[in-house]
Write a protein that binds this DNA or RNA. Structure first.
Length: 200
DNA sequence: ATGTTGATTGGCT
DNA sequence: GCCAATCAACATT
Protein backbone atom coordinates (compact mmCIF):
# COMPACT_ATOMS: atom_id res chain seq x y z
CA UNK A 1 0.00 0.00 0.00
CA UNK A 2 1.30 3.46 -0.87
CA UNK A 3 0.67 6.90 0.55
CA UNK A 4 -1.60 9.25 -1.34
CA UNK A 5 0.50 12.11 -2.72
CA UNK A 6 -0.10 15.70 -3.78
CA UNK A 7 -1.52 14.69 -7.17
CA UNK A 8 -4.46 13.06 -5.43
CA UNK A 9 -5.38 16.30 -3.66
CA UNK A 10 -4.57 18.67 -6.54
CA UNK A 11 -8.01 18.18 -8.10
CA UNK A 12 -11.48 19.66 -7.79
CA UNK A 13 -12.43 19.69 -4.09
CA UNK A 14 -15.75 17.92 -4.55
CA UNK A 15 -14.07 15.22 -6.66
CA UNK A 16 -11.49 14.66 -3.94
CA UNK A 17 -14.18 14.41 -1.25
CA UNK A 18 -15.86 11.65 -3.26
CA UNK A 19 -12.56 9.96 -4.15
CA UNK A 20 -11.43 9.77 -0.52
CA UNK A 21 -14.15 7.20 0.19
CA UNK A 22 -12.48 3.80 0.38
CA UNK A 23 -9.04 5.28 1.09
CA UNK A 24 -7.39 4.69 4.45
CA UNK A 25 -6.47 7.23 7.11
CA UNK A 26 -3.53 6.23 9.30
CA UNK A 27 -2.15 7.77 12.48
CA UNK A 28 1.09 6.51 13.99
CA UNK A 29 1.60 7.87 17.49
CA UNK A 30 3.67 6.98 20.54
CA UNK A 31 0.70 4.88 21.67
CA UNK A 32 0.68 2.87 18.47
CA UNK A 33 -0.81 2.72 15.01
CA UNK A 34 -4.50 3.16 14.26
CA UNK A 35 -6.17 3.19 10.87
CA UNK A 36 -9.62 3.35 9.33
CA UNK A 37 -11.27 3.26 5.94
CA UNK A 38 -12.89 6.57 5.02
CA UNK A 39 -16.64 6.12 4.58
CA UNK A 40 -17.94 9.71 4.75
CA UNK A 41 -16.54 13.12 3.72
CA UNK A 42 -17.68 16.64 2.82
CA UNK A 43 -16.32 19.37 0.53
CA UNK A 44 -16.00 23.04 1.51
CA UNK A 45 -14.85 25.06 -1.44
CA UNK A 46 -14.47 28.56 -2.78
CA UNK A 47 -14.88 32.19 -1.71
CA UNK A 48 -18.64 32.07 -2.12
CA UNK A 49 -19.36 28.88 -0.14
CA UNK A 50 -21.19 30.34 2.86
CA UNK A 51 -20.81 27.07 4.75
CA UNK A 52 -17.01 27.26 4.57
CA UNK A 53 -14.73 28.86 7.12
CA UNK A 54 -12.98 30.41 4.14
CA UNK A 55 -15.85 32.49 2.83
CA UNK A 56 -15.10 35.60 4.92
CA UNK A 57 -11.48 35.64 3.88
CA UNK A 58 -8.25 34.63 5.50
CA UNK A 59 -8.01 34.54 9.31
CA UNK A 60 -5.44 33.00 11.65
CA UNK A 61 -7.60 29.91 12.09
CA UNK A 62 -8.44 29.17 8.47
CA UNK A 63 -5.15 30.30 6.87
CA UNK A 64 -4.17 26.77 5.95
CA UNK A 65 -7.27 26.51 3.72
CA UNK A 66 -5.61 29.06 1.42
CA UNK A 67 -2.36 27.12 1.26
CA UNK A 68 -1.00 24.06 -0.54
CA UNK A 69 -2.96 20.84 -1.04
CA UNK A 70 -2.39 17.80 1.12
CA UNK A 71 -2.06 19.81 4.34
CA UNK A 72 -4.23 19.24 7.39
CA UNK A 73 -6.69 21.76 8.77
CA UNK A 74 -7.64 20.83 12.35
CA UNK A 75 -9.97 23.11 14.30
CA UNK A 76 -11.78 23.05 17.63
CA UNK A 77 -15.57 23.25 17.76
CA UNK A 78 -18.34 23.37 20.38
CA UNK A 79 -15.75 23.59 23.13
CA UNK A 80 -15.07 19.86 22.83
CA UNK A 81 -14.16 18.37 19.50
CA UNK A 82 -11.41 18.47 16.92
CA UNK A 83 -12.36 18.32 13.23
CA UNK A 84 -9.89 16.96 10.69
CA UNK A 85 -9.80 18.33 7.14
CA UNK A 86 -7.37 17.98 4.25
CA UNK A 87 -6.76 20.78 1.74
CA UNK A 88 -7.74 19.90 -1.84
CA UNK A 89 -8.15 22.06 -4.97
CA UNK A 90 -6.89 22.21 -8.54
CA UNK A 91 -3.35 23.47 -9.27
CA UNK A 92 -2.89 27.22 -9.55
CA UNK A 93 -6.03 28.38 -7.75
CA UNK A 94 -5.86 30.47 -4.59
CA UNK A 95 -9.34 30.11 -3.15
CA UNK A 96 -9.92 28.44 0.26
CA UNK A 97 -10.95 24.79 0.19
CA UNK A 98 -10.91 21.67 2.36
CA UNK A 99 -12.46 18.23 2.74
CA UNK A 100 -13.88 17.32 6.16
CA UNK A 101 -13.42 13.68 7.17
CA UNK A 102 -16.69 12.68 8.81
CA UNK A 103 -16.48 8.92 9.42
CA UNK A 104 -14.17 5.92 9.28
CA UNK A 105 -14.57 2.16 9.45
CA UNK A 106 -12.00 0.89 11.97
CA UNK A 107 -9.35 -1.33 10.33
CA UNK A 108 -6.38 -1.65 12.65
CA UNK A 109 -5.34 -0.51 16.10
CA UNK A 110 -8.71 -1.66 17.40
CA UNK A 111 -7.53 -2.06 20.97
CA UNK A 112 -6.04 1.43 20.94
CA UNK A 113 -9.26 2.89 19.57
CA UNK A 114 -11.30 1.05 22.18
CA UNK A 115 -9.16 2.59 24.91
CA UNK A 116 -9.44 6.06 23.45
CA UNK A 117 -13.21 5.69 23.17
CA UNK A 118 -13.54 4.42 26.75
CA UNK A 119 -15.97 1.53 26.69
CA UNK A 120 -18.30 2.77 23.96
CA UNK A 121 -19.60 0.29 21.38
CA UNK A 122 -17.42 -0.11 18.29
CA UNK A 123 -20.06 1.51 16.08
CA UNK A 124 -19.51 4.77 17.98
CA UNK A 125 -15.72 4.82 17.80
CA UNK A 126 -15.33 6.62 14.49
CA UNK A 127 -18.86 7.32 13.19
CA UNK A 128 -18.66 11.11 13.26
CA UNK A 129 -16.08 13.86 12.71
CA UNK A 130 -15.52 14.46 16.43
CA UNK A 131 -15.47 10.76 17.19
CA UNK A 132 -12.86 9.81 14.62
CA UNK A 133 -10.37 12.39 15.87
CA UNK A 134 -10.81 11.04 19.40
CA UNK A 135 -10.33 7.44 18.24
CA UNK A 136 -7.19 8.28 16.27
CA UNK A 137 -5.74 10.68 18.83
CA UNK A 138 -5.84 13.74 16.56
CA UNK A 139 -5.76 17.22 18.10
CA UNK A 140 -4.31 20.71 17.63
CA UNK A 141 -0.78 19.31 17.33
CA UNK A 142 -1.87 17.83 13.98
CA UNK A 143 -2.91 21.13 12.42
CA UNK A 144 -1.10 22.34 9.34
CA UNK A 145 0.89 19.16 8.73
CA UNK A 146 1.84 18.00 5.25
CA UNK A 147 -0.08 14.72 5.14
CA UNK A 148 1.69 13.76 1.92
CA UNK A 149 5.18 13.97 3.45
CA UNK A 150 7.02 10.65 3.69
CA UNK A 151 7.67 11.17 7.41
CA UNK A 152 4.25 12.45 8.47
CA UNK A 153 2.73 10.44 11.35
CA UNK A 154 -0.69 11.17 9.89
CA UNK A 155 -1.29 10.17 6.27
CA UNK A 156 -3.57 8.53 3.72
CA UNK A 157 -2.98 5.09 2.25
CA UNK A 158 -4.24 3.95 -1.12
CA UNK A 159 -7.20 1.70 -0.33
CA UNK A 160 -7.18 -0.14 -3.65
CA UNK A 161 -9.91 -0.17 -6.25
CA UNK A 162 -13.03 1.83 -5.42
CA UNK A 163 -14.86 0.94 -8.63
CA UNK A 164 -17.41 -1.28 -6.93
CA UNK A 165 -18.29 1.17 -4.16
CA UNK A 166 -21.83 2.43 -4.07
CA UNK A 167 -21.55 6.11 -3.18
CA UNK A 168 -24.39 8.37 -2.09
CA UNK A 169 -24.41 12.17 -1.89
CA UNK A 170 -26.51 14.78 -0.14
CA UNK A 171 -26.43 18.11 1.71
CA UNK A 172 -23.69 18.74 4.24
CA UNK A 173 -24.45 18.22 7.93
CA UNK A 174 -24.86 20.82 10.64
CA UNK A 175 -25.09 23.96 8.52
CA UNK A 176 -27.82 25.57 10.64
CA UNK A 177 -28.16 29.19 9.51
CA UNK A 178 -26.25 28.85 6.22
CA UNK A 179 -28.35 30.34 3.38
CA UNK A 180 -29.36 28.63 0.19
CA UNK A 181 -28.15 27.50 -2.25
CA UNK A 182 -25.08 26.51 -0.25
CA UNK A 183 -27.08 24.81 2.47
CA UNK A 184 -28.43 22.27 -0.02
CA UNK A 185 -25.32 21.69 -2.12
CA UNK A 186 -24.85 17.89 -2.32
CA UNK A 187 -21.25 18.03 -1.19
CA UNK A 188 -21.47 15.27 1.40
CA UNK A 189 -20.52 11.79 0.22
CA UNK A 190 -20.81 8.45 1.96
CA UNK A 191 -20.60 4.74 1.23
CA UNK A 192 -24.10 3.28 0.95
CA UNK A 193 -25.23 1.04 3.81
CA UNK A 194 -21.98 1.36 5.71
CA UNK A 195 -22.51 0.95 9.46
CA UNK A 196 -19.99 3.67 10.35
CA UNK A 197 -21.53 6.54 8.40
CA UNK A 198 -22.62 9.23 10.90
CA UNK A 199 -26.07 9.49 9.32
CA UNK A 200 -27.39 6.99 6.83
C1' DA B 1 -14.28 44.38 26.17
C1' DT B 2 -18.26 41.80 25.51
C1' DG B 3 -21.68 38.85 23.09
C1' DT B 4 -22.86 35.22 19.83
C1' DT B 5 -22.25 31.13 17.39
C1' DG B 6 -20.73 26.79 15.88
C1' DA B 7 -18.67 21.66 9.69
C1' DT B 8 -20.91 17.88 17.44
C1' DT B 9 -21.77 14.59 20.80
C1' DG B 10 -23.80 12.14 24.60
C1' DG B 11 -27.08 12.00 28.20
C1' DC B 12 -31.69 12.50 29.52
C1' DT B 13 -36.91 12.92 28.86
C1' DG C 1 -36.38 13.67 20.23
C1' DC C 2 -34.38 17.44 22.78
C1' DC C 3 -30.85 20.04 24.85
C1' DA C 4 -26.74 21.11 27.70
C1' DA C 5 -21.81 21.09 27.56
C1' DT C 6 -17.92 24.32 26.80
C1' DC C 7 -14.73 27.59 24.59
C1' DA C 8 -12.18 29.69 20.75
C1' DA C 9 -12.97 32.44 16.93
C1' DC C 10 -14.97 36.18 15.18
C1' DA C 11 -18.13 40.19 14.98
C1' DT C 12 -19.73 44.03 17.20
C1' DT C 13 -19.49 47.80 20.68
Amino acid sequence: MSRLDQSFFARDTVTVARSLLGQVLVHESAEGRAAGRIVEAEAYSGWDDRASHGHRGRTPRNAVMFGPVGFSYVYFIYGRYWMLNVIAKPPGVEYPAAVLLRALEPLSGLELMANRRSGRPQKEWTSGPGRLTLALGIDETHNQLDLTAADSPLYFEDGGSTDSLQINSGPRVGLGTVPEPWKSRPWRFWIADNAYVSRG
